[in-house]
Structures are given as structure tokens and as C-alpha cells.
């Protein structure tokens, strides 16, 4: 175990997150964790694709999905990925305020996405497409809902880290935490791209 260092010096290789052994462990561990998350979502996608036509007389995806709304949600989430990159860039330059600003924007965009998703779900429930209405309903909400839960967790997590960063500044201990949360954020973004394609676009095609 390497000793922790707390001086605010710019990292030599430009990456503060892997400047300590602890940081290296965290970053590697988190990449591996994302591997496990990939399998998790793959299983949910598989289940959804197998069951998406089992509507049992309820509304179909083609009938339900509103691509405009979903496209807006997609745009919001993709933008938040960009702002998260900007935050990490600021972190490695030790610019606390800039980082906090971009993290804040990321969180707000995430919240915007969530609001849209909740609005969408409420709309679906009114149309008779619920978690319990059919196997299609169950698998749809399981997949999209698990993603939504990940977004929610991400928002809470990043906000928590912003609080910590405000108190402690950018240290070699904070940097890997911030970095992996940003990795996580990109990951749920990528998952959303797959949801957009395999759930909404494919659902519209029929």
C-alpha cells in the first residue's frame, strides 16, 4: 500500500487519478466492475429482445414510443457525457471551480433526463403499458428502469463527490473517486445509446 499524498501538485503524466497505487487499484477495479455491469445489461437486453413482442393485447412499442421525446432525452444525456469529460479535464489541471461547475452541469442534465423519463413512464402507464400488464411491460421497465436507477445513483454519487471536493479540494485521494464516477457516467451513457437503438428505434420499426 502506498502512502497517501495530499499535496496539490499537478500530476507528472497528466493523470491525477492514477498517481497513487490506491488510485490505480480503484481505476482498474472500476473498469472491471463496468465489465460486470455490461454482462448485467446484456442479460436485460436479451430478456427484453426475447419478450418485446409479448404485449398480450396491450399497446405495442410502435404505438407507445415517441421518438421526439426520446431523442431529446438522448441529446441531454450525451451532452452530460461531454460536460463530464470537461470536468475531468479541469480536475487534472487542478481547477477546482471549473470542475465543480461542469460536474454541476452534468448533474443538472442528468436530472433533466430523469424528469423526461419519469414523464414518459407516467404517459405509458396511462396508455395501459405497466410493469404488470404483460411480459413486454415487465421487460421494458426492467431494462429502462435499471438504467434509470443507474442514472439516479450516478446523480447522487456525483453530488456527494462535489460536496467532498468542495471540502477537501482536488487531492490524489479525491481524483480517482471523481474519475471513476465519470467513467460510470460515460458507461450509463453508452448503455442509453443501446437502449435508444434496440428499444426505441427497433420498436418503432416494429
Amino acid at each position: 500500500m502506498a502512502a497517501h499524498t495530499h499535496e496539490n501538485t499537478a500530476p507528472q503524466n497528466g493523470h491525477l487519478e492514477t498517481a497513487s497505487l490506491d488510485g490505480k487499484n480503484k481505476v482498474l477495479g472500476f473498469w472491471l466492475f463496468l465489465g460486470a455491469e455490461t454482462v448485467l445489461f446484456a442479460c436485460l437486453f436479451g430478456t427484453y429482445l426475447a419478450l418485446r413482442n409479448q404485449t398480450m393485447g396491450g399497446p405495442t412499442g410502435e404505438h407507445l414510443f415517441d421518438l421526439k421525446l426520446v431523442a431529446l432525452a438522448t441529446a441531454i444525456l450525451l451532452t452530460s457525457s461531454l460536460t463530464s469529460v470537461l470536468a475531468m479535464h479541469a480536475m487534472n489541471q487542478l481547477k477546482l471551480k471549473t470542475m465543480q461547475f461542469w460536474l454541476g452541469v452534468t448533474v443538472l442534465l442528468g436530472l433533466g433526463f430523469l424528469v423526461l423519463e419519469i414523464y414518459e413512464f407516467i404517459h405509458y402507464v396511462h396508455e395501459g403499458h405497466t410493469f404488470m400488464s404483460s411480459a413486454f411491460g415487465s421487460s421494458f421497465y426492467a431494462l429502462v428502469g435499471t438504467h434509470g436507477a443507474h442514472v439516479t445513483f450516478g446523480i447522487v454519487w456525483i453530488s456527494t463527490l462535489m460536496l467532498q471536493a468542495a471540502k477537501r479540494g482536488i487531492t490524489t485521494e479525491m481524483a480517482p473517486k471523481l474519475f471513476v464516477s465519470s467513467l460510470y457516467w460515460h458507461f450509463i451513457d453508452v448503455v442509453w445509446v443501446f437502449i435508444f437503438t434496440l428499444v426505441y428505434l427497433l420498436g418503432k420499426v416494429g
Binding site: 419478450l51 409479448q54 410493469f131 411480459a135 415487465s138 421487460s139 426492467a142
Partner: peptide, 9 residues
């Protein structure tokens, strides 16, 4: 939910 209940698809 109805993932495994064939009567619900």
C-alpha cells in the same frame, strides 16, 4: 411482473 409466466407472455 411476468417474465416467466407464460399466460402473460
Amino acid at each position: 411482473a411476468n417474465f416467466f409466466d407464460y399466460t402473460m407472455g
